[in-house]
Design a protein around this nucleic acid. Structure first.
Lengths: 349, 349
DNA sequence: CTGTTAGCGCTTTCAT
DNA sequence: ATGAAAGCGCTAACAG
C-alpha cells in the first residue's frame, strides 16, 4: 500500500503562526531565531518559544529573510553547465578546496550551475541568489557577452582563465608558463615534431597553454603546423577520436602535448588500441596531474597546478573582501605550475 | 594603481526603477520578464522595455520573486559538510549523474552543503531554499534528529543509506547484498580469517555492508572478531593509520574488506610501507569501483555500484514527482551491486 | 524586554 | 494592454 505525501509547502508555518501559538509578537519570534538577537528576549520567553519551534519544526522563510537583509552568510561558486565536468578533477578539486576552507568558517556554501549565456540571455537569472560572494569558474563561458560580468551584484573572484583586460580579482595559475614548461621539456628531450590537443575553444586557459607552448618553440625556431593542433574539448573520449588524425599524420610526430590529463588518457587508450606503445612510439605530456596520472601505464608526465590551493585562496580572498566591503583592490594571485616527470616521454637524440 | 570595486548591491536596480525609466508600471515590467506573461504586453512596449533591460542589465530579485511564487524551476542536492567529500568519486559521480540528467531539462541545479545537525540545531536553515525538489545524500548525517526529515518542505528523494523504517522515496543500492558478495568471494577463495575497515559510524550504508558481510560468514559458521572490525571514516589516510592494528594483530588475517575503495588505497599504501605485498601477504577487497581501482598495483577487486545511474534515477524521480504533485508513491529503487574481479585477492587453499 | 509597524521587490488579481 | 494595489514572510527601527 503506497504511502502518500502531501505538499507541505502550502501548509508551511509562518512567523505569524508561531507568534500566535506562543502568545507573543512576530518580532519576538524573529529575535529568538537569530543568535545575536536572542539575548534581547527574556529567558523564560525564549524557553517557551524554543519548545514551540522544536515541536512544530518551524524554519524561517529564507526568501523573505533575504528580501529584508542582504547578508546571507553564504559563499557561492558558479560553474558553466557543461557535460562531464564532474568527471574531471580540475572541477572537483576546486570544490574540495573551496569547501575545505569554508568549513572552518561560519559561511555556508552553495554551488550553482549556469547554462551558457543564461546570465544574459534569460534575464531571470540573478547573480546574487542568496549569496554574499561568488567564485566564478570559466567566467568566459558564462559571461561571453560584453560587460555582463561587471553587472554581477556581489563581490566575486575569478578562478583561472586569466585575462589582463578584465578588471577583476583573479586567482589563477600561470598557464603560459605551464605551456612553456611543456615545450621546454619535450624540446630538451630531443623532440622536434610535436602535436597539441587543446581544450574547447572557449577555454582561455587552453589558449594560454598553447600560447606558451608555441612561444617556447618559436624561440627555438620551430613552428607548430596548423593541422597538428586539434581541439578535443578537454574530454577523454573526444581525444580518443582526435588522436587518430594526429598519429596517422604524414608528418611523423614524436610527441603529443595534451592541454589536460583527461585527453592524455584518451590518447593513451587510442595508442594501445592501435598497437602503439607510449613512450616508445609516441611520447605524451599532460596537464593537471590528476590522480590517475601517476597510476596509469606508463605513468604520465604532466604539468601540475595546485588547484586545491588556488581554490582555497579564492575562498580566502572573497571572505576578506567581504569584511572590507568597498575598499578592495584587484590583486591577481598567480600560482606557478611545475612539471612532474614520469614515464610517458621518451628521450630521443 | 589598484582599481576599486564599489558595492553594487546597494545600487541594484529594482523593478520600480525600470518602470520609471520605461514610463510604464511595475506590473508591465514584471510581465515582460517572464516568457509566459510576455504575450500580455504590447509588442512595441516590449521592445522598449527589452532595450532598457539590456542597457541597464536589470535582473529580477530572486528573493522577492520567490516570496511571491513558490516555483523556482530548480532542483537541489544536499550533502553533509564533511571534509574530503569531493575527493571521493562516490560524491562527485552523484553530482555527475544528477547534472547530466538535469542538463537535458529546463531545470536549474543547485548544490547545498549542510553542517551536521544544522537543519535542526540552528533553525535558520530552510529546506526549500529556492528549490522545487531536493535530492538528499546521507540523510542520516543531516537529519539525525527525530522527525526532522519529515519537515522538509519540498518533495525529496534520498540516495542510498536505505532504511525501511523511513517512509520516504529511496534510490539505493542493495548494500547488504554488496557485503554478502564480498564475503562470499573471499570465502570462496579460501579466506577464513578476515578483517573489515568500515566507514564512519553515521553511515547507514557502511553498516549495511558490514551486516551483509557478517551475515554470509555467519552462515558459514565464521564469526568476525570485534577487534578485527575498525572504523576508518571512509578516508584514505585514516585507513592508512587503522590498517596497522589489523595487520599486526596476533590473529593472522589473510584479507581485509574495505567498505570503500579510498580506504583500500590507504591500506595498500600501508602494506607497501611495511614491506608487505598484496595480495601475497594480505588480500584486499574494496567497494565503489573508483577509477583508480583498475589502475593501482595490484588492481583492486571491488564491489561496483552504478552510482551515476542511481543519481540519474533520483533526478528523474524528483522531476516526475513534481509533475504529479500530491499523489506520489514511495517506490524504492534498489540497484544490484556486482563484484569486479581484479588482482588484489589471492586464492588460498 | 516586548509590541507595532513600515517596507524589502516582486507577482497577481481586479479594474479600467 | 496597462495600472493600482494588496500582500508574500520577514527584520529592524522605534516606541513604550
Amino acid at each position: 500500500m503506497p504511502f502518500r505525501i502531501t505538499n507541505m509547502k502550502s501548509s508551511k508555518l509562518t512567523i505569524k503562526d508561531m507568534a500566535k501559538k506562543a502568545g507573543v509578537s512576530v518580532a519576538t519570534i524573529s529575535r529568538a531565531m537569530e543568535p545575536h538577537t536572542r539575548p534581547k528576549v527574556a529567558p523564560h520567553t525564549l524557553k517557551r518559544i524554543d519548545a514551540l519551534i522544536k515541536k512544530y519544526g518551524y524554519t524561517t522563510n529564507l526568501a523573505a529573510k533575504h528580501l529584508r537583509q542582504t547578508v546571507t552568510k553564504t559563499i557561492g561558486i558558479v560553474f558553466p553547465y557543461v557535460p562531464g565536468i564532474f568527471y574531471s578533477e580540475y572541477y572537483t578539486h576546486i570544490l574540495a578546496g573551496v569547501t575545505e576552507y569554508l568549513l572552518e568558517t561560519d559561511y555556508r556554501f552553495k554551488m550553482l550551475l549556469l547554462k551558457e549565456g543564461s546570465w544574459w540571455d534569460d534575464y531571470n537569472f540573478q547573480a546574487g541568489e542568496g549569496v554574499d560572494g561568488l567564485i566564478i569558474v570559466h567566467w568566459f563561458k558564462i559571461f561571453s557577452n560584453q560587460g555582463a560580468l561587471q553587472r554581477v551584484d556581489v563581490p566575486y573572484v575569478l578562478i583561472n582563465d586569466f585575462d589582463p583586460q578584465i578588471k577583476a580579482q583573479f586567482v589563477a595559475a600561470d598557464q603560459v608558463l605551464g605551456g612553456r614548461l611543456a615545450a621546454e621539456y619535450l624540446y630538451t628531450n630531443g623532440h622536434r615534431q610535436m602535436a597539441v590537443l587543446t581544450g574547447p575553444a572557449w577555454s582561455v586557459d587552453s589558449r594560454l597553454r598553447l600560447e606558451g607552448f608555441k612561444g617556447f618553440l618559436k624561440e627555438k625556431g620551430i613552428v607548430l603546423a596548423e593541422d597538428l593542433v586539434k581541439e578535443a574539448g578537454y574530454l577523454e573520449h573526444q581525444a580518443y577520436e582526435s588522436a587518430m588524425g594526429l598519429i596517422k599524420n604524414e608528418k611523423r610526430i614524436t610527441a603529443i602535448f595534451c592541454c589536460n590529463d583527461q585527453m592524455a588518457f584518451g590518447v593513451l587508450r587510442r595508442l594501445k588500441d592501435l598497437g602503439l606503445e607510449c613512450p616508445k612510439d609516441i611520447s605524451l605530456l599532460g596537464y593537471d596531474d590528476e590522480l590517475r596520472a601517476s597510476l596509469c601505464t606508463p605513468s604520465l608526465t604532466t604539468i601540475r597546478v595546485d588547484i586545491v590551493h588556488l581554490a582555497k585562496e579564492a575562498a580566502r580572498i572573497i571572505l576578506s573582501n567581504l569584511k572590507s566591503i568597498d575598499n578592495k583592490e584587484f590583486t591577481t594571485f598567480l600560482s606557478q605550475p611545475t612539471l612532474i616527470e614520469r614515464q610517458s616521454v621518451k628521450k630521443i637524440n
